[in-house]
Each structure stands twice: as structure tokens, then as C-alpha cells.
């Protein structure tokens, strides 16, 4: 049982928060993003410690996905910048993996499950001889060991999303970004994947930024929850989650603290919607 070390930290009302110790894994430094006159992100600053899990919530149009894309190097901030381990992130980086919501488009339909995972290994120049063992290991880890030879179309949505996660793990990322990854899945599959992702993050020590519009998912997964506000996107509140780990779908969700957080976030989001 690891009680999150974040519980003792004071809650931050503003944008900037102190890392747990030393250099943060990710430092978001006053980033803005505008398309012409349209301001999408209006100045976000945030430090994310190594191994931390951040949930990002907010009403639609608040720039959740845009923020994540900037962390992935897929979108360029208009001003400000993102630093990974102290150096500026100039573009996509193998150390930062991203799981897209639309797994159907992110997977290669002409490659089997094994082939899709292998792509990440091919990209980082892993010798062909070593690939099959690594692929098998990763598929096993994510519960797709029996389905290595299947094509994506032969797999359920949950399996396809597992596959995308496996491909991300093959990058051996320091940071795992997730863009509403379970939004299209049914409730049971969703909970199973939440637990698996938590397990993977715990064993690999990866830092995770998880965008969701599901308040309970945000609480269940996160060490901290960043609530964004729209027009332009900015940090409204940062809420610490002091729930014990490992978390449990039944016990954690019945915890009075969980219920309290849910009410608090609900009120926050509701205000933004008005």
C-alpha cells in the first residue's frame, strides 16, 4: 500500500505548482496557443513530477486535447514552452507516447496485433531478432497474448485500445499521454482498462497525463486533477487526490473522500457550464 505523497501538499489555487522533488519531468511554462485571432489556450503553467498521474478535466472547448497535443509535440505553442526533463520539447519525442481516443484510426488495419506493436520497435531501430520476444511480452502484459495474430478489425473496441496502449509501451516512454482513451468503451471494459493502466504506470514508473470528461475516472486515476476553464483554455483549479493506492473499483469509489471530491469537481464544472 502506497499512500500518495501528494496528500500533504497544500492545494494550489493558481496555475503553478511545485514538483515533488528536484526537477519536474514536465514543465509547462506559460503556454498559449492561438489560431489567428482565436485564442485556444490562454497561458497555462504546470509542473508534473516524475511518476505522477495528472487527470485533466474541463468542459468541451477548454483546450484539454490541445494541451495534450502540445505535450506530445504535435501542436506548437504560440508562446511559452514545454520542457521534458529540463530541455525544451521541439516536436514529437519517443519518450512521450500518446494514446488517441479513436483507436480505429490510430492502428494499422493491415497489420496484426503483433505487427502493430512491432511498428514502435521498428521505429526505434530495435533489431528484428529481438522484436518478437518483446512484442509477445507486451501483448501478454496487456492481456492480448492470445490475439497476437488477429487484425484490428477482428478485435473488440476494448482490445483495440489495449493494443494501442501496448504499442505506446513499446516506445518505452517516460510520459504516457492519454486523450479520453476509454470514452468510446462500455463501462465494464472501461473499468478493467483503468486498473490495467494504473498497474502499468505503477510498474513502469511512467508519468501520466490523462484527459477525460468523466469526473469519476479523473478522481480514480489521478494524483492531482487539473480543472481547465474555457475561452481561452486556462487552469481553473488544481485538486489533490489523497486516495490510497493501489486503488480499487469498489472500495475507492465508496470512499467518503472520493464522494467528496466528486461533489467538489461537479460543482466546479457545473459553474463553468453556465
Amino acid at each position: 500500500m502506497v499512500v500518495t505523497q501528494l496528500s500533504t501538499r497544500p492545494r494550489h489555487g493558481g496555475g503553478h505548482s511545485a514538483p515533488r522533488s528536484g526537477e519536474p519531468r514536465i514543465r509547462i511554462r506559460d503556454v498559449t496557443l492561438a489560431y489567428g485571432p482565436l485564442q485556444i489556450i490562454g497561458g497555462i503553467s504546470l509542473d508534473i513530477a516524475s511518476g505522477e498521474t495528472i487527470s485533466v478535466i474541463g468542459p468541451s472547448g477548454c483546450g484539454k486535447t490541445t494541451l495534450l497535443r502540445m505535450l506530445a509535440g504535435l501542436a506548437r505553442p504560440t508562446s511559452g514552452g514545454v520542457e521534458l526533463d529540463g530541455s525544451v520539447l521541439g516536436g514529437p519525442n519517443r519518450s512521450v507516447a500518446i494514446v488517441f481516443q479513436d483507436y480505429g484510426k490510430a492502428l494499422l488495419p493491415w497489420r496484426t496485433a503483433a505487427g502493430n506493436v512491432s511498428l514502435a520497435l521498428e521505429a526505434r531501430g530495435c533489431p528484428a531478432k529481438e522484436r518478437p520476444a518483446i512484442v509477445r511480452d507486451l501483448l501478454e502484459k496487456i492481456g492480448l497474448g492470445q490475439h497476437a495474430a488477429k487484425y484490428p478489425r477482428e478485435m473488440s473496441g476494448g482490445m483495440q485500445q489495449r493494443l494501442q496502449i501496448a504499442r505506446c509501451l513499446a516506445q518505452e516512454p517516460k510520459v504516457l499521454l492519454m486523450d479520453e482513451p476509454f470514452g468510446a468503451l462500455d463501462a465494464m471494459t472501461r473499468q478493467a482498462l483503468q486498473d490495467e493502466v494504473l498497474g502499468l504506470v505503477a510498474t513502469t514508473g511512467a508519468t501520466m497525463v490523462f484527459v477525460t470528461h468523466d469526473l469519476e475516472e479523473a478522481i480514480y486515476l489521478g494524483d492531482r486533477i487539473v480543472c481547465l476553464q474555457p475561452n481561452p483554455g486556462r487552469v481553473g483549479r488544481i485538486v489533490d487526490v489523497s486516495l490510497a493506492r493501489p486503488r480499487d473499483q469498489l472500495l475507492t469509489r465508496e470512499d467518503p473522500e472520493f464522494l467528496r471530491l466528486r461533489r467538489e469537481l461537479y460543482d466546479l464544472i457545473k459553474d463553468d457550464h453556465q
Binding site: 509535440g73 514529437p92 519525442n93 511498428l119 514502435a120 521505429a123
Partner: peptide, 29 residues
């Protein structure tokens, strides 16, 4: 070609030849 796959290729760090050979050509097949 699915634009999402270009993003996947960028994040995975595929080079140009790999993008053509492993993504664009099979998707145009």
C-alpha cells in the same frame, strides 16, 4: 492516408522512408 497515422508516425519517430514503405504504401494498396 488517415491523418491520424501521420501523427502516430511522428510520435513513434518513423523516418520518411518508413512512413512511405510501412504506412502510405499499404494504406494505398
Amino acid at each position: 492516408m488517415e491523418p491520424r497515422l501521420y501523427e502516430v508516425s511522428e510520435v513513434l519517430g518513423l523516418n520518411r522512408a518508413q512512413v512511405i514503405w510501412k504506412l502510405a504504401l499499404p494504406s494505398a494498396m
